[in-house]
Design a binder for these strands. Structure first.
Length: 598
RNA sequence: GGUUCAGUAGCUCAGUUGGAUAGAGCAACAGCCUUCUAAGCUGUGGGUCACAGGUUCGAAUCCUGUCUGAAUCACCA
């Protein structure tokens, strides 16, 4: 069944050709949903067409409307208000639409085929020196949801995580643990591994800052003090030992990292996040050097007297950027150049998406420019940096070193407890086993958190207020989950009453409430497409909210099971079932679970 | 200072290939549970879309300038 917007577009172009003798491009025709204050379902804006018709907007609208009404059986009536031509659709269109959509197994989704294009989504990319916090949660949720959405658009998606498991910041917690840890382990302390390691990272920073302060008081400049504090010298030494493969340091590194991974695994599992492939920086940080050499030969880069290698991007409006240190070791940029190349060789992807915060906009600009302009890698055109805004707290930005972070594990626990409290107050937990109840609280708490984060446009920074953001009413995840549970309950009751709605039913009328829902269901495939094209899960979130709101309105006003006309009751049950299926489908694109009852 | 991004109701956010009288939620107030789950529904109040110009049938949306905020511009990652 062709979508009505397409039919309208085609026939409108035909009308203009017929009436005014001019061929118009399909995309200059603006066909949109009719504003709710006017009568009609779809609207053609005729202002731009008056230049062609050489007539007033009203007359032009009437002429085109008349033509279309006679040509398209699904258009029942039209009206013209100023320059807006509003079409009213025939109810048969909606009846047929529901029948078709209802019959599809996964309405709205495009299944990836084995020969579909591949898209790589890199996200999460944590450092192994501290536990995950709210910022990582936004990253993880965006990356995971985006992957699901792209998959629903028919791409083969590979979810990839590049773990920052080496470097000076990792050595900081290692050194601190060795100095002050007294052999403390996750088992001996009862702490989650990532939290334990994070504790020593904070400890390092604390003593380091103290040493810097002491030196400043002795007359050092701040810069000198930061360079000469004994702890930073020790940690540099440790990094060098690591790079040379010093056995003691490598073993220590392996031990602490394994604790962190155990901790991360728990957090990822709680969050419901998984990856197809995990890369480790320790395995990739040397890559990229050959590409730099290649660039040097071509004259794309400059080697300075001290041996360091730079790229000059001043013509592109950026600065000079370091690619290799004077001692020949690589920097972040070097390895990103290398891993990009490796991945394109491995997967030959159609797109490669990096989900990374907007604080690294500059870095990704440089990365793409170097690959594209300096190294002439045409595939770099397909690199896309999904740059998301920071999560801020009422008191400002989160800072790991200063302890002003919202810890991921803590937050999930708080959300679950809030859900528990609310459920108990509302008496929802009755008739549930302890196990069922716990599962429900987790579903609701996480649903609230995930929806809260994903409903905001990724590009924008967002504010997280711990007191107010943990909301379960209004435009929230639990609101949607609740509606879903209601639909489930309705369907269950209907089948208990022996109603079999899964059959043809002769419908003579559809009311406004039903039509509102049908129109939204009708839009679902378009929303999936748009959110895939713009890499924006928020479009899905806002769409579900609209759908759920109009279903709740329907539910409140219109009887379903209690409807006495059997055909109408069946029709409304079908509508409800499809709404439930779309809610489930759309929520799964956000990575949010739904309870069967709540 | 350069670059980039942002500024919409008291708060958190929708709304941009330019379209009709700018929308939700929260908070406030007023209603709706003997009737399919009230985590719901209905209603009221709340706006100089940061400011000033410009483009045109039409601007929150595009352009220019100003103000405010954030990020970034490291031999850190």
């Amino acid at each position: 069944m062709t979508r009505i917007e397409e039919m309208l577009g085609r026939v409108t172009a035909e009308a203009i050709k017929e009436l005014y003798g001019v061929n118009v491009e399909r995309n200059v025709l603006s066909i949109q949903k009719t504003n709710k204050d006017f009568s009609g379902d779809f609207t053609l804006v005729v202002f731009p067409l008056t230049r062609i018709s050489k007539k007033s907007p009203e007359v032009t609208g009437k002429e085109i409307g008349e033509y279309i009404k006679n040509k398209l059986k699904y258009i029942r009536e039209f009206n013209v208000v100023k320059g807006f031509l509003n079409f009213e659709t025939e109810k048969t269109y909606w009846v047929e639409f529901l029948k078709e959509a209802y019959g599809k197994e996964e309405y709205g989704l495009i299944k990836p085929q084995s020969d579909s294009k591949t898209v790589i989504v890199e996200f999460s990319s944590p450092n192994t020196n501290k536990p995950l916090h709210l910022g990582h949660i936004r990253n993880n949720l965006l990356g995971y949801s985006l992957s699901k959405i792209l998959s629903a658009n028919g791409y083969n998606v590979r979810m990839v995580n590049l773990v920052n498991d080496r470097g000076i910041h990792i050595c900081k917690s290692m050194l601190a643990w060795e100095k002050w840890g007294n052999g403390e382990t996750p088992e001996s302390s009862g702490m989650k591994g990532d939290h334990l390691v994070g504790k020593y990272y904070v400890l390092f920073e604390k003593y380091y800052r103290q040493q810097v302060q002491d030196l400043i008081e002795k007359g050092y400049s701040k810069e000198e003090a930061e360079k000469n504090a004994p702890l930073i010298k020790e940690v540099r030494e440790m990094l060098q030992k690591w790079e040379k493969g010093n056995e003691h340091v490598v073993i220590l590194w392996g031990k602490l990292n394994s604790w962190v991974y155990d901790g991360f695994d728990v957090t990822y599992k709680e969050l419901g996040i998984s990856f197809d492939k995990i890369y480790y920086e320790s395995g990739t940080y040397l890559s990229g050097k050959t590409l730099i050499e290649e660039g040097l030969e071509k004259g794309a880069f400059i080697r300075r007297e001290d041996g360091s290698v730079w790229v000059d991007l001043t013509n592109e409006g950026l600065d000079e950027k370091l690619l290799l240190r004077s001692d020949g070791t690589s920097v972040y940029m070097t390895q990103d150049i290398g891993t990009a190349q490796l991945r394109f060789e491995e997967y030959n992807p159609y797109k490669m998406i990096y989900v990374v915060g907007n604080e690294q906009d500059y870095h990704f600009n440089v990365l793409k420019l170097v690959l594209l302009k300096k190294l002439q890698k045409e595939w770099a055109e397909n690199i896309y940096h999904l740059s998301y805004g920071m999560v801020e707290l009422p008191e400002g930005k989160m800072k790991s070193r200063e302890g002003t972070v919202v810890d991921a594990d803590d937050l999930m626990n708080v959300m679950r407890d809030t859900a528990r409290k609310a459920s108990e107050e509302l008496g929802k937990a009755e008739n549930l086993t302890e196990e069922e109840a716990l599962k429900l609280y987790k579903t609701i708490g996480l649903g609230a958190l995930k929806y809260f984060i994903l409903k905001v446009d990724p590009k924008k920074k967002m504010l997280f207020n711990p007191q107010e953001s943990i909301e379960l009413n209004g435009n929230t995840g639990p609101f949607i989950q609740y509606t879903y549970a209601r639909i489930k309950s309705l369907l269950k009751k209907a089948s208990e009453n022996g109603i079999s709605w899964n059959k043809e039913s002769a419908i003579t009328e559809i009311n406004q409430e039903e039509k509102d829902i049908l129109k939204l269901l009708h839009e679902y495939p378009v929303v999936i497409k748009e959110s895939g094209e713009t890499y924006n899960p928020a479009l899905i979130a806002n769409y579900i909210y609209e759908l759920v709101k109009s279903y709740n309105h329907f539910y409140q006003e219109i009887p379903v099971i209690k409807e006495l006309n059997y055909d109408i009751a069946c029709y409304r049950l079908k509508l409800s079932e499809l709404t439930g299926r779309v809610i489930r489908s759309a929520m799964s694109l956000l990575g949010i679970d739904l309870p069967e009852r709540m």
